[in-house]
């Protein structure tokens, strides 16, 4: 397993949430457990979060990254909203999106400021690697 740190000794702190109405939480829960096993501190917000609840949690928990899971084809609207909300709050926290995201949408999301997009089949290493890269760049 990869080591879940920012590169120094501090463990990564990651918010995991479902934004909006989408209730598919299998993937997010699996990622939460995998990250915990790898030493990442997971703040699991669960279902039906808004950009506000996520920003509040990110500030209070001093999070290194925000991970969103999207399975309802709403990602092109919702993910950029999250990125903008983070900016508007004056925070410098990368937003990472996982789930059912077609390739060309992944490109569009990157252009709109999403730090990384993880598709189906991403391994633990892929997830941790994406978080670490986003945090350090």
């Amino acid at each position: 397993m990869s080591d879940g740190t920012t590169g120094g000794d501090e463990p990564l702190r990651v918010i995991l949430a479902k934004l909006g109405l989408d209730g598919h939480d299998r993937g997010l829960k699996v990622v939460a457990r995998m990250l915990r096993d790898a030493g990442v501190e997971v703040i699991y917000l669960g279902l039906r979060q808004t950009t506000d609840t996520i920003i509040n949690a990110a500030e209070q928990e001093d999070a290194d990254a925000i991970g969103l899971s999207m399975h309802n084809a709403g990602h092109l609207t919702l993910a950029p909203r999250m990125v903008d909300a983070v900016k508007d709050a004056g925070l410098d926290i990368p937003v990472i999106v996982g789930g059912i995201i077609p390739e060309e949408d992944a490109i569009e999301l990157s252009e709109k400021g999403v730090a990384a997009v993880l598709g189906p089949g991403a391994s633990t290493e892929d997830v941790i690697g994406a978080i670490r890269n986003s945090v350090t760049t």
């Binding site: 909006g20 109405l21 989408d22 309802n72 084809a73 709403g74 092109l76 609207t77 919702l78 909203r81």
Partner: peptide
């Protein structure tokens, strides 16, 4: 679609980005 499944109208704040998607 998701808003209909959750009892929300298409003009609800919650429905943004999800109308007619799934």
């Amino acid at each position: 679609d998701m808003p209909t499944l959750m009892g929300r109208d298409s003009d609800s704040e919650w429905a943004l980005g999800e109308v007619g998607r799934a």
